[in-house]
C-alpha cells in the first residue's frame, strides 16, 4: 500500500538489511558451519532409548531449558535490531512474548538435517523419536515438518535474519500500545527483506511462501501453549518449581 508505506531510500534499506544480518550472526547460538560439521553425529539407539525412558516431566523440563536458552539469544537479536529499543518497553515485551518462540522455530531450520530428519538437540542430532517421552507426538511431528519445509526454501543466512526480524516485528500482536511505530518498523523490515531477496535473485514466489510460514509459526506456537497447559494441569508443581523462570514468564 503506497499510502501507508514509509518512504525509504535504497541506502536505508541496505543499511537495515546489514544491521539485521549482523545482529543475526552475532546472536546465533551456533554457527552454521559448526552445525554442518556436527550433522553426522546422530544419537545412537541406546541414547535414544535413554531419552525415551526419561519420565515425562524430566523430558519436559529439559526441553523447557533448551527453549529458554535459545530464546535468550533471540532477545539479544531483537535488542540489536535498529529501532527495536526505541519502541516503548511494553511493546518490546509484547513482541518478544509473542514472537521469540516463533524465531526459535525459524532458526531451527539452520540446525535441521533434512536427509535424516534430525535436529541438533542436547549435543547431537535427534530424530522425532528422541522426544517421545514428552507425550506430544503431534506437536513434535508438526515442528519437524515445519523445519523440513523451511529447509526446502534454501534460505541464506541474510534471508533467515531478515525473515526472523519480520516475524518478530509483527504489528498485529495483541496489547501493542504504539502499533503504528511497530507497523512502520515491520514495513521497513519487509522492504529490506524484499531487497535482499531481489539481490539474491530469488524467484518471485518466495515472499508468498514466507508469508505462509508466518501462519504456520502461529499455529505451532498455539499448539505449544496447548500442550504446555495440558502438561501443567497434570504436573503443576514441576512447572512451578523446576521450569526456567523466563519460560514461565513467557508462556505461563
Amino acid at each position: 500500500n503506497g499510502e501507508t508505506s514509509p518512504t525509504v531510500s535504497m541506502a536505508e534499506l541496505e543499511h537495515l538489511a546489514q544491521n539485521i544480518s549482523k545482529s543475526h550472526v552475532e546472536t546465533c547460538q551456533y554457527l552454521r558451519e559448526e552445525l554442518q560439521q556436527l550433522s553426522w553425529q546422530a544419537f545412537l539407539q541406546d541414547e535414544v532409548d535413554g531419552y525415551q525412558s526419561k519420565p515425562r516431566e524430566v523430558m519436559w523440563q529439559l526441553c523447557a531449558i533448551k527453549i529458554t536458552e535459545a530464546i535468550q539469544y533471540v532477545v539479544e537479536f531483537a535488542k540489536r535490531i535498529d529501532g527495536f529499543m526505541e519502541l516503548c518497553q511494553n511493546d518490546q515485551i509484547v513482541l518478544l512474548k509473542a514472537g521469540s518462540l516463533e524465531v526459535v522455530f525459524v532458526r531451527m531450520c539452520r540446525a535441521f538435517d533434512t536427509q535424516n530428519n534430525t535436529v541438533y538437540f542436547d549435543g547431537k542430532y535427534a530424530g522425532p523419536d528422541v522426544f517421545k517421552a514428552l507425550g506430544c507426538d503431534d506437536l513434535i511431528t508438526s515442528v519437524f515438518d515445519f523445519a523440513k519445509s523451511m529447509c526446502s526454501l534454501h534460505l541464506s543466512e541474510d534471508e533467515i535474519a531478515l525473515f526472523s526480524a519480520f516475524v518478530l516485528l509483527s504489528a498485529d500482536r495483541t496489547w501493542l500500545q504504539e502499533k503504528l511505530q511497530v507497523e512502520k518498523l515491520q514495513q521497513k523490515t519487509q522492504l529490506a527483506l524484499q531487497h535482499v531477496l531481489q539481490k539474491n535473485q530469488r524467484e518471485d514466489g518466495i515472499l508468498s511462501k514466507l508469508r505462509c510460514k508466518v501462519s504456520a509459526l502461529r499455529s505451532l506456537c498455539a499448539r505449544h501453549s496447548e500442550n504446555l497447559s495440558a502438561f501443567r494441569a497434570v504436573y503443576p508443581d514441576i512447572v512451578r518449581s523446576h521450569f526456567p523462570p523466563l519460560y514461565k514468564e513467557l508462556f505461563g
Partner: peptide, 17 residues
C-alpha cells in the same frame, strides 16, 4: 506487563555484550 515480565524486562535493560 513490565511487572509480570521482570526477567524479560531485565534482559532488555542489560547492555548488549
Amino acid at each position: 506487563l513490565k511487572e509480570k515480565h521482570k526477567i524479560l524486562h531485565q534482559l532488555l535493560q542489560n547492555s548488549t555484550s
